[in-house]
Amino acid sequence: MNFTQLNLKEKINSYFQTDTRKKLNLFVFLFPATLWLICFFIFPLSIVLVYSFLERGTYGGVSWILTLENYQRLANPIYWTVFFRSLYLAFLTTFACLLVGYPLAFFIVTRPPQWRNILLLLTIIPFWTNFLVRIYAWIVLLRSEGVINIIIQSLGISNEPLELLFNSFAVSVGLIYGYLPFMILPLYSTIEKFNFSLIEASQDLGANDWRTFTRIVLPLTYRGIVAGSLLVFIPAVGEFVTPDILGGAKTLMMGNLVQSQFLAARNWPFGSVLSIVMMAIVLLPIIVYFRISEEK
């Protein structure tokens, strides 16, 4: 799992420096992936981009009249609320996953080898169950007569059932739960490569535990943190299943907006605009990531 060693620029450079024969080899190997990307990524993306400048058709679809109206609609603060909520929830999810995932990944790395594999397996096991089923399971836990409320009331912490479901709390719980493994795995692969004798060297030179962590451990596991955060943040921003199921009608995210524009409102051009905005938001952290990995 080499999220951390991805360096596109280097690979492209080396492509142009090799001789023809090597280029041919490279072409053969890259052909399927390139074809795939063109057919199923660049082509649809172009359609979305074109649609965003067209007028909506009466019964869905588009009519071929150029307009900027769809972009002007973004000025409406209703959409801004949804964007900010998405960003806020995605950041919250990323941060919470990091807070839980970092110590956990550290814990797993420092176990004896036979335990390490079992613990890693345990992090992956949730993937064996369908995501929808797992999110529905949270309803059972969070609803007013749910497991958590029963426990809270029987312990006498609260007399009335707490409002745990169909709000942004429920959505963030669902997101954190769903994306935690994507944080743990890249963190694990980075921390596993960390040379633990550096901790002793740091202590030996007079650094206490906190300074050893901030000056040595954190900078050297930084790439794992960035990779994990991206893997959590990007899908979390565009998430629409979790807010749909756990958020109710009040906690819309960008993904829900896109979905409703395409399927319910049948406004494909505006749905395209929302998709493009979402992509732009997601692209930002990726650019930041490449900057960091280029620095070295």
Binding site: E200, S202, L220
Partner: peptide
């Protein structure tokens, strides 16, 4: 006291 480690344990960053 200070230690010179077997594998040097220099900070790579």
């Amino acid at each position: 006291v200070n230690t010179v480690f077997q594998n040097y344990a220099l900070f790579p960053h």
